[in-house]
């Protein structure tokens, strides 16, 4: 699980082109949107595409997205759960 979280953090910083932050600086429980990492709805679209591309997991609707996109922890849990289905 820890390795997966590191992969997600690297993906977020690299592919969303975040400036001035290192993957290791991202707190596992920090909110991804608004007051946390400061991502917005446009990033959410890219994140859905990136998760599908890198982890072969499809986020289908807002219920899944809302649960998965709370933090790095919840996204890692979502990917793990989806892969085991």
């Amino acid at each position: 699980m820890q390795e997966l979280k590191e992969q997600i953090k690297e993906m977020v910083v690299r592919d969303l082109k975040l400036q001035g932050i290192e993957p290791s600086e991202i707190d596992d429980n920090a909110p991804l949107f608004e007051e946390g990492l400061g991502l917005d709805s446009l990033d959410a679209v890219e994140l859905v595409v990136l998760v599908q591309k890198h982890f072969d997991v499809q986020i289908e609707d807002m219920d899944e997205g809302q649960a998965a996109f709370k933090s790095i922890n919840t996204l890692a849990e979502f990917i793990t759960a989806s892969r085991s289905k």
Binding site: S41, L42, A44, V45, V48, V49, Q58, I59, E60, D61, M62, E64, G65
Partner: peptide, 8 residues
């Protein structure tokens, strides 16, 4: 705002 469903 429906962006996730639209992306899917």
């Amino acid at each position: 705002g429906g962006m996730i469903e639209s992306t899917a």
